[in-house]
Design a protein around this nucleic acid. Structure first.
Lengths: 118, 118
DNA sequence: TTGACACATACCATTATGGGCATACGATCG
DNA sequence: CGATCGTATGCCCATAATGGTATGTGTCAA
């Protein structure tokens, strides 16, 4: 088997730097393809392809506006990623490097959260 | 060009479900390969390959222990992912979905139009 | 209508992934 | 020492992704 399709989930879709860049551009608001092309300095077909992937995983939505297509960010799919990494947050923010059984509490994190920031 | 190497960064390494599973197993503490193999029910060579990828992006560390190799999680590379997604957190946790919020001005640029999806 | 414009899609080439299987390699056991 | 366990690596295959270039489709202008 080959690598999972980029359209499998947000994890795969976002693994591509260009797609992350597109999301960042869209974070400022709805934009037509041409704007993204200009912002990223990529070929238009490439941008369209990346947008297609992002659309398939639900990270962006399109809206027709004359001959332009306005793309809008929908960050919700990113929540799954956030939820996943979040479980490891304490492992890098605290000095648990040498500890082994630390993660016994990982599951407990689900209900009891003590919130750590770096 | 093909897709970026899985060893490019944590984003790519973690896009693979099996590798995420491995990290989850290691979250409970240091473990020899055989344990991971047993936990995931995958072929040993596959696990070794995945571990290699994880090692190359710094998500795991190895330690020789007799004829076993003990793998240990190092979550630090995950921080970059966390930092990235974090910027979008408000976009999914708040009700900015249907609203244009910050980008209200863009919305003002165009008025009458009908939304169309794929 | 023709043409310019904004995007999307098709096709090509290059690359390498994930999985399967066999095997090489180091450490330990007998 | 040789045998075996624990892992890593090599090789093969099928899949597909990214980037490039060309072209198709729909919209608006003249």
């Amino acid at each position: 088997m080959a690598r999972a399709a980029t359209t499998t989930d947000a994890f795969n879709a976002v693994a591509e730097p260009r797609r992350r860049q597109i999301l960042e551009v869209l974070a400022d608001g709805e934009r037509p393809v041409s704007d993204i092309v200009a912002s990223l300095g990529l070929a238009q077909p490439l941008v369209s392809k990346h947008l297609r992937v992002l659309r398939e995983v639900g990270l962006v939505e399109v809206r027709d506006h004359g001959r332009q297509r306005m793309y809008r960010l929908d960050a919700r799919p990113l929540k799954s990623i956030h939820d996943w990494v979040r479980n490891y947050e304490r492992l890098w923010s605290e000095r648990f490097d040498r500890l082994d059984g630390v993660l016994g509490e990982l599951k407990a994190l689900e209900d009891g959260d003590d919130g750590n920031d770096e």
